[in-house]
Amino acid sequence: MTTRRDFLKKLGSGAVALVGVQFLSGCEELVFESKVAGAPLSFMTPAEDGSWYWQSGNGIAKDDAPDIAPEDWTLKIRNNGNRVGGVSFADLQALADNGESLSYWKTMRCVYGAYVGPAATTFVANGIFTGIPLHRVLEEAGVDPDANAKLRVFGADGFSSNIPIGRAFDAGPSPLAPLLAYELNGEPISRLRGGPVRLVIPETWGYKNVKWLDALEATPSDAIFGTYETERFNPQTNPSVSAETQRRIDDPGQISLASVVSDPNAVSATLKGPDVTIAGASFAGGQKIVDVQVALDDGPFESAQLKGYEEMLDALSPAQRELAAECAQQSEDWPFVGVWRTWTKTFSGLAPGDYIVTIRARDDAGQAQSGDTSQPLVIAPEVRVPFRVT
């Protein structure tokens, strides 16, 4: 057991990498003051506002989010500045009716996300996206991947990003194609989730999955491009950002190996003993999570209980199970690449007092979280959460 004084000493000396609830520009600012037990995360995050997090790369308010009716939506496609095609919502529906749609699980994570709290405040969520593979419309427009380096992506809110042209045509760490997505969890993507159509790329941070999709432009230039890439993470205007960080934000923009804790749902929560269950989720953009280790104070690390495929299905409604059956990922692919795994770890017989729990995940590439904070865009540091038992 750790005393409060010992914990504060460690925190002051920098010996504890404490990651709590933080709200940074680009994500919704929420007042989160709960200091009680939380709850395990559902494998499928409800798409409703308040469950799925709100994020705006331009910092716009919800009331100012673009409101585009499907019948009014058109995607403009340009090749080196020249318009070469356009796609309407009806065009996407026609492709879907022809059997060309694709559905898959995707863990969405804001690059500014926190590590303790419910999904809506840690800015991470998991759901099933359905849409038309991006390469399908690029091929139809005559975009040549061999003549271009990047695909620039523009949202109706003025936000922009980019992906390597090869990834737009499927080559990447995930075996799944980027999507022009129009459904989330079996329902039309709502206005606040970026509808009627948004870009979805399996392994990438949220900012690469541009919402309110408006235009695509293939270009032979490999210059860094995008709102986050050139504004938020620019070492020339932000001295805290290194050139290496900017490069990783630009390409590959891949979600780091990380863990979040949902129970307790706040730093320094007060929990009822003597048995305490810690719960959360771990994920890595281009890899599978194979183990999550949890330690109490200075005790040994022990494996948490990772939810299995059948447990995941059992927690879904009948309609959700039908939707999951249509996904590209199935039981033989479990655990899924780039998709979170939820877990729990119970500590029994805890005496009243103050404790610190440490969580670290490991992926199938052999990468593991630790106390190292030097490469947070590749491997996020282990999560350490103090709590009190009564």
Score class of each variant (00 low, 15 high):
residue 83 R to H: 07
residue 86 G to L: 08
residue 387 F to N: 02
residue 37 A to N: 15
residue 299 G to I: 12
residue 291 D to I: 09
residue 378 V to E: 09
residue 113 G to Y: 01
residue 270 T to L: 13
residue 166 G to S: 14
residue 199 L to T: 00
residue 276 V to Q: 03
residue 370 S to V: 13
residue 211 K to A: 06
residue 266 A to P: 00
residue 238 N to M: 07
residue 292 V to M: 11
residue 386 P to N: 13
residue 10 K to Q: 12
residue 169 F to A: 02
residue 120 A to M: 11
residue 36 V to E: 10
residue 344 T to N: 13
residue 42 S to D: 07
residue 49 D to W: 12
residue 265 N to Q: 13
residue 200 V to G: 00
residue 262 S to G: 14
residue 54 W to K: 13
residue 301 F to W: 07
residue 231 E to I: 08
residue 205 W to C: 01
residue 139 E to Y: 03
residue 148 N to R: 00
residue 254 Q to C: 12
residue 375 Q to K: 09
residue 324 A to T: 08
residue 269 A to Q: 02
residue 73 W to H: 02
residue 253 G to E: 01
residue 140 E to V: 11
residue 362 R to S: 11
residue 281 A to C: 10
residue 82 N to M: 15
residue 203 E to L: 08
residue 174 S to C: 10
residue 210 V to A: 01
residue 247 R to D: 15
residue 376 P to V: 08
residue 382 E to S: 10
residue 234 N to M: 06
residue 153 V to E: 00
residue 133 P to G: 04
residue 50 G to A: 09
residue 291 D to F: 04
residue 389 V to R: 02
residue 314 D to P: 05
residue 225 F to M: 04
residue 87 V to Y: 01
residue 31 V to W: 05
residue 93 Q to D: 15
residue 26 G to W: 01
residue 58 N to R: 05
residue 123 F to A: 05
residue 318 P to G: 10
residue 6 D to M: 07
residue 35 K to D: 15
residue 86 G to H: 08
residue 124 V to S: 05
residue 63 D to Y: 13
residue 273 G to E: 12
residue 107 T to N: 05
residue 261 V to E: 01
residue 7 F to P: 01
residue 239 P to C: 14
residue 226 G to F: 01
residue 155 G to E: 00
residue 163 I to Y: 01
residue 91 D to Q: 04
residue 303 S to Q: 09
residue 83 R to Q: 14
residue 119 A to I: 06
residue 177 A to V: 06
residue 372 D to C: 11
residue 354 D to K: 09
residue 41 L to P: 00
residue 127 G to M: 10
residue 146 D to W: 14
residue 115 Y to C: 12
residue 154 F to C: 00
residue 102 L to V: 15
residue 307 K to L: 13
residue 161 S to G: 04
residue 380 A to F: 03
residue 288 K to T: 13
residue 343 W to V: 02
residue 102 L to T: 06
residue 330 Q to K: 11
residue 107 T to S: 12
residue 41 L to V: 14
residue 340 W to P: 00
residue 94 A to T: 06
residue 231 E to Y: 07
residue 305 Q to I: 08
residue 348 S to E: 10
residue 280 G to D: 02
residue 384 R to I: 06
residue 224 I to T: 07
residue 166 G to N: 10
residue 280 G to S: 03
